[in-house]
Design a protein around this nucleic acid. Sequence first.
DNA 1: ATGGTTGATCCTCAA
Length: 260
Amino acid sequence: MKIASFNINGVKARLPALLEWLREARPDVVALQEIKSQDSTFPREPIEDLGYNVATHGQKGFNGVAILARRPIEDVVRGLPGDPDDAQARWIEATVAGEAGAVRVCCLYAPNGNPAPGPKYDYKLAWMARLEAHAAELLAREEPTVLAGDWNVIPQPEDAADPEAWREDALFLPQSRAAFRRILHQGWWDALRTLHPEKGLYTFWDYQAGAWRRDHGIRIDHLLLSPQAADRLRACEIDRHVRGGEKPSDHAPIWAELEI
DNA sequence: ATGGTTGATCCTCAA
């Protein structure tokens, strides 16, 4: 089963690029972030025409997440547990069956947090703390589980082309990286780093200042695997070429092949 | 050091 994560930065503006990538990459499950769409205006039909079921958790204007899957999408949970007053659409999780078992796919869009310090950074850290609590519950189920999404965290200096440029950014501040590590150290496996120790692997290049042309990227989209999923990991890659396409998102897709 | 871009919307904000 090929499971992908892709921050598409607006599903309506990105529809041609999304459809082209779906046709080419043929993922079984996709976690989409920043759909910037309400559920009622999400362009379901052209995606369903390619053979995907669609589950959305959108809101007006910003944020918004969705799961696409060739097999049925079951037991859907919308919204990150832990704060019923949180109106931001940043979490959807569901179960998808494979040929040899099922996988729980959690699609997350963590808060950016800039400017830091400030209320947005406080919200980022509070959201990460809620994620930490829910991730522990998921791990305790001892099932194949994937935390797939835009984590808005650069885990290590080698995950940025120019780490010094990010030194005071919410994506790279010590507290942000510590929050990511606390979750990782519960027992999750960073799928990309499990198979690829090399430098220069990025998933995001800013639209500004020629970041793509100069390869000034960062790695902020991550697939974290429960041990039961990590045991079945066969491949993990970034579809970097998608960032160089027509009207691209500022993120590239990342995917893992699991023997499920 | 600064500036640079994109998307959705009610024209500025978020990234």
